[in-house]
Amino acid sequence: MLIPVINRSTHLLPAYQTAHAAGMDVRAYLPEPVTLRPLQRALIPTGLFMEIPEGYEVQVRPRSGLAYKHGIGIVNSPGTIDADYRGELKVLLVNLSDEEFVVQDGERIAQLVVARHETAVWQEAATLSETTRGAGGYGSTGVN
Results as ranks from 00 to 15, higher is better:
112 L>H: 05
85 Y>R: 02
110 A>Q: 01
132 T>W: 05
5 V>A: 14
82 D>T: 02
100 E>W: 05
95 N>M: 02
47 G>D: 11
121 V>W: 07
93 L>A: 00
100 E>K: 08
93 L>E: 02
74 I>M: 05
88 E>N: 05
37 R>E: 12
110 A>S: 02
99 E>A: 14
115 A>E: 14
119 T>S: 12
43 L>K: 09
72 I>F: 02
99 E>R: 15
138 Y>G: 13
136 G>M: 13
67 A>K: 08
22 A>R: 02
142 G>A: 13
27 R>Q: 14
96 L>K: 09
17 Q>G: 11
8 R>E: 15
23 G>M: 03
90 K>F: 04
70 H>N: 07
51 E>C: 03
132 T>F: 08
137 G>R: 05
113 V>H: 06
66 L>C: 06
77 S>N: 14
133 R>W: 06
71 G>D: 08
129 S>I: 06
2 L>E: 14
127 T>S: 13
89 L>F: 04
118 E>H: 14
56 Y>E: 14
98 D>S: 15
99 E>Q: 14
98 D>Q: 15
87 G>V: 11
14 P>D: 06
136 G>Q: 13
42 A>D: 05
114 V>I: 15
83 A>C: 15
75 V>L: 08
117 H>R: 12
139 G>S: 12
69 K>N: 13
51 E>L: 06
76 N>L: 11
53 P>R: 06
140 S>T: 12
44 I>V: 14
96 L>G: 09
56 Y>L: 03
29 Y>V: 04
58 V>I: 15
48 L>G: 04
26 V>T: 07
7 N>T: 02
26 V>I: 15
86 R>M: 01
22 A>G: 13
24 M>C: 02
45 P>E: 05
96 L>T: 09
93 L>S: 02
76 N>M: 03
66 L>Q: 04
